[in-house]
Design a protein around this nucleic acid. Structure first.
Length: 420
DNA sequence: TCTGGGGTCCTAGGACCC
DNA sequence: TCTGGGGTCCTAGGACCC
């Protein structure tokens, strides 16, 4: 049996940990640039605020109903996520984190009769220890555990934990579960299934495996098996990320090459640091920038350059150098670039680098410099030392009008909160 | 006026091999 | 007019997740 532990309205719950006065009030957390709603309290959901809706479209409702908005504060969410996950990890060696706010515990070490009470204690421990409300679903497969956790969330009577164990429970749970809410069934699959007359999860399980595979291919077959109680999905994570990307939308489009270069240099430096943190290097990099896809009144321009590196590297200076050269090649003068990004690909362990016989760089020396710079950042805070290319101007290009303080990671904020 | 960000997996099709 | 068969590898794009 698996237990899925899922944090309720995670980003909003994180904000409320430090603002208990916001319990019971409608609260939303916004995406980057304060663009869209990405997390909603139950009260905000009750007002009809949909996931992913642009803020400007609900401005009236927000003002009228006194909805509290927060810009996203990922260092806060990441920090609280770590605390929740470390509690779960303590429970069993067989814990798999699935996302920032959920993870699966293998329950095989707990007697069946005690599993529900065991999970109820975990819900309480996380609520009291971290301040985050969570829901848990127990079942024989991960997909069914996800279903169970949604019931746990939907009905307060479950006290945060719902179990799907017997065949009768499985049938009843799936009968009342919309097909589009099943883990792995997205927009396209939902439409296909509905036109085949399938509206609930149970109806899918009543069709043949051939039907599921023909309509939805391999992923759909896996979902079909899991819903029938056959443990089929393995989410064991890879030891290193296969790709690392940073991208941002700007508050106002950038036309100036210098400003764009500064952004790309920063994205690149940030990606490279993450690459080094997982002791890996990359062999390819894509840099891209494009105009606003929502502006039908102006000409669209999409630039994208693939850079193949002579020797796999995680060196910030080297990557920034290649990235800026690529940007200058593809940049179109006058185009209003609304979004830009960097993607690192073909990532391998740093111990697997194949050296180039004709390489003229002293890579050992450059690596020592890089380690020294990382050490300074670790000790004195991010961006203590940066490249000149990362700060060509002092122009602000992002909007974060509603950002909460860095309660858990910035000492000044911790002192401020305690004083308060 | 204003519309997010970071990932993984799968598949079809092309290039290439014998 | 007729124009093989089987296999691997790589890539771009799509679908999905949170």
């Amino acid at each position: 049996m698996y237990a899925l532990c899922d944090c309720n309205n995670f980003f909003v719950s994180c904000e409320r940990v430090f603002r208990p006065d916001l319990e019971g009030r409608p609260v939303v957390v916004l995406s980057g640039n304060d663009g869209c709603v990405v997390s909603r309290s139950n009260e905000a959901k009750a007002l009809g605020i949909k996931m992913g809706v642009p803020l400007y479209q609900i401005k009236g409702l927000v003002d009228k109903q006194g909805v509290v908005c927060f810009s996203s504060n990922f260092s806060l969410y990441g920090d609280l996520s770590d605390r929740v996950m470390s509690i779960l990890r303590q429970k069993t060696a067989r814990f798999e984190q699935y996302s920032i706010d959920e993870g699966f515990i293998n329950l095989d070490h707990v007697p069946e009769a005690e599993q529900k009470a065991y999970c109820e204690r975990i819900v309480l421990e996380i609520r009291q220890g971290v301040g985050i409300p969570v829901s848990m679903g127990i079942a024989a497969t991960k997909t069914l555990a996800k279903v169970a956790s949604k019931y746990a969330k939907r009905y307060p009577g479950y006290h945060g934990v719902c179990v799907i164990r017997t065949e009768e429970q499985r049938q009843k749970a799936l009968e009342n579960f919309e097909i589009g809410d099943v883990w792995g069934i997205g927009r396209k699959a939902k439409a296909k299934l509905e036109s085949a007359g399938i509206k609930t999860a149970l109806q899918l399980t009543e069709r043949s495996s051939i039907f599921a595979q023909r309509l939805l291919n391999k992923p759909g077959l896996m979902t079909w098996r899991e819903l029938r109680g056959d443990d089929a999905i393995d989410i064991t994570q890879l030891e290193i990320k296969q790709s690392i990307t940073i991208s941002r939308t700007f508050a106002h489009a950038l036309t100036d090459l210098t400003l764009l270069e500064e952004q790309i240099a920063n994205f690149c430096a940030h990606c490279a640091r993450q690459l080094r943190l997982q002791h890996s290097v990359c062999q390819q990099m894509v840099i891209y920038a494009h105009t606003s896809s929502f502006r039908t009144d102006q000409e669209q321009h999409y630039l994208s350059e693939l850079v193949t590196l002579p020797v796999a590297t995680a060196n910030t200076q080297e990557l920034v150098c290649h990235a800026l050269a690529a940007l200058r090649r593809a940049y179109r003068r006058g185009a209003p670039y609304k979004k830009a990004g960097v993607i690192l690909m073909k990532i391998i362990r740093e111990t697997a680098v194949v050296p180039d016989l004709f390489d003229e760089k002293d890579r050992e020396k450059e690596a020592r410099l890089q380690r020294a710079l990382d050490h300074i950042d670790d000790r004195h805070g991010k961006r203590s030392v940066i490249l000149g290319a990362q700060m060509r101007s002092d122009t602000t290009v992002y909007r974060t009008d509603h950002k909460s303080p860095l309660y858990t990671t910035d000492l000044r904020d911790i002192i401020r909160v305690r004083a308060h």
